[in-house]
Amino acid sequence: MSEEILSISDLRFAYNGTPVLEDVSLTVNRGNYLAVLGPNGGGKTTLIKCILGLLTPQQGSVRVFGESPDRVRHRIGYVPQYATAQEAFPICVLDVVLMGAMNTASTLFTSTWRRTRANVEKARHALHMVGLDGHDQDNLRDLSGGQRQRVIVARALMGDPDLLLLDEPTANIDPQGKFCFYEFLGSLPGTITTIVVSHDLSITASPFTGIAIVNRSLRYAPGNTLNEELLAMLYGTHEPTCPMGTFISTVSGMFPAIADVQPPEMESDNASAGREGHR
């Protein structure tokens, strides 16, 4: 059951010579729910794009399902950042989900996206999985931010993904909805591996099985924990008198079990840890 879904080793990526990611190594197994946290500009989206094969790292390798990413892209369900920015777009929920069934071996002239009965059935099932039964004929713009984001996840589920990749999925959802959304991700079937990127700490309240902090380098910690060291990497080190320093010690105090027991993987700077925790 510890099939390797994603393995990244010694990845380095630079935009015009400015390194964004350095010495990044990471392994994710089937069924994991990985939270990727990091400050803005820390390289989270770049990492996602490398996993999708939209960007090619200058150094190191990315293997998804043991192959190069652009060959297995159709097995990755991708939920892009700001997917809901098109607020007024005239489209109904069912049509959005059906987009996920687009033929993946597509060029401009051969791509198809047929409204077959099987696809519609499947789209209804995907909507059921995200808890939006009966909304299929609704206009997308009439839904709330959280519901809209679920529609986008349902679209990603149309491709029967083995790996679900979400980039800042809660950017447009109110604080209350965020927790529900992360809970919902945790409740997806255990065969789907989920990687969620966020700079939003509310994700730490959801049942993830591992956490990675990305800030030019990547640090991985297994388990459902967030400790002071990881927080320092997220927000920088602060004097105790600084409000941020107080915040960090308070938040890490909320997870006492972790603060006491340092996972051994944390010794090395860029841990590529295998993990036991399955959903």
Binding site: L52, L54, R73, H74, I76, Y78, P80, Q81, A83, Q86, F89, I91, D95, V96, M99, M102, T104, A105, S106, T107, L108, S111, W113, R155
Partner: peptide, 16 residues
């Protein structure tokens, strides 16, 4: 439609 609605997703699906 796919391109107009969500360009990033279209790109990820391999659309030109």
């Amino acid at each position: 439609l796919l391109f107009s609605f969500d360009r990033e997703f279209a790109r990820a699906r391999g659309l030109a």
